[in-house]
Simulated scan of single mutants.
Amino acid sequence: MSDSVLFERVAVPGGQVLGLATLNRPQALNGLDLEMCRLLLTQLQTWAQDESVALVILRGAGDKAFCAGGDLHALYAGMQANQGGQPWDNQYAREFFDIEYRLDYLIHTYPKPVLCWGDGIVMGGGVGLFNGASHRVVTDSTRFAMPEIAIGLFPDVGGTWMLARLPAGVGHFLALSGAQINAGDCLFLGLADAFLPYRAFPALLDALTQQDWQGKREQLDRRLYAVIDQVRGSAHAALGPLERHYAQLRALCAGRDFERITQGLLAWHDSSDPWLARASQTFAKGSPGSARLSHALLERVRHLSLADVFRLEYIVSLQCGVQGDFQEGIRALLIDKDKQPRWNPDSLEKADAQWVTRFFQPSWPAGMDHPLADLGRSMGEAAV
Score class of each variant (00 low, 15 high):
262 T>G: 07
239 L>H: 11
139 T>L: 00
170 V>D: 11
319 Q>D: 02
251 A>R: 15
264 G>D: 03
199 R>G: 11
82 N>G: 02
200 A>G: 08
64 K>I: 14
233 G>A: 03
196 L>E: 01
215 G>R: 00
204 L>M: 03
332 A>Y: 05
159 G>P: 04
332 A>C: 09
117 W>H: 02
197 P>F: 09
32 L>P: 05
266 L>Y: 13
293 L>R: 04
172 H>Q: 07
99 I>L: 00
43 Q>S: 10
158 G>Q: 03
214 Q>F: 15
241 P>A: 05
235 A>M: 04
217 R>K: 05
52 S>M: 12
255 G>K: 05
264 G>M: 01
384 V>L: 15
170 V>E: 06
84 G>N: 14
273 D>A: 03
131 N>M: 07
259 E>G: 03
203 A>K: 08
378 S>K: 12
173 F>M: 15
62 G>Q: 14
44 L>C: 14
89 D>R: 04
135 H>K: 05
205 L>T: 06
234 S>N: 12
133 A>D: 07
341 P>E: 01
157 V>N: 12
189 L>K: 06
246 Y>T: 03
112 K>H: 14
64 K>T: 10
232 R>S: 03
230 Q>I: 05
167 P>L: 01
262 T>A: 08
152 G>S: 14
241 P>E: 00
40 L>I: 11
274 P>G: 06
236 H>F: 15
306 L>D: 01
